[in-house]
């Protein structure tokens, strides 16, 4: 049931990404191209998503636990740090270059377009690279 709920949420998420055309890099890049032929569509995607997710957060905060009985795992408020800003900046450069962020890249695998698989494989490599660098850094930190 818990896995099925996650699968259902994932499918619905994929439907939303495809319907909104976030899976089309040209659309994403046209949104980011504010100095060119700007296409504001993706602001509507985010705005509409935020309306619904804000309602869900407001409901969730009034509940002691999730509907399937587990504790709510909302991230704790934390301070801004350089890591967050640097990470977001790097992500934005990649997003602008390729026109894909993680969700649409995974959803776009369904199209079978080879370039989507190239991007997604590189993205997974980036995630693993981060994990590897982080592990090496933490081992050195312990030794030092």
């Amino acid at each position: 049931m818990k896995v099925l709920a996650a699968l259902f949420s994932g499918i619905l998420f994929g439907v939303g990404l495809a319907v909104s055309q976030m899976t089309n890099p040209a659309k994403v890049q046209a949104f980011l191209d504010v100095a060119g032929a700007w296409d504001p569509s993706l602001a509507f995607v985010m705005g509409a998503a935020l309306v619904v997710s804000s309602i869900a957060v407001a409901i969730a905060r009034r509940r002691p636990q999730a509907l399937l009985g587990e504790p709510l795992q909302l991230p704790e408020p934390a301070a801004l740090d350089l890591r967050l800003i640097a990470g977001a900046a790097l992500f934005g450069v990649g997003w602008g270059l390729g026109g894909f962020c993680p969700g649409p890249a995974l959803a776009g695998l369904a199209t079978g377009v080879p370039a989507v698989w190239v991007f997604t494989a590189s993205m997974l490599a980036g995630v693993l690279l981060y994990r590897w660098v982080f592990r090496v850094a933490s081992i050195r930190g312990l030794r030092g």
């Binding site: 790097l90 992500f91 590189s122 690279l129």
Partner: peptide, 10 residues
């Protein structure tokens, strides 16, 4: 781009 997105989001 993929490497930057993977690394940057983590």
């Amino acid at each position: 781009a993929g490497l930057l997105v993977g690394l940057g989001t983590q």
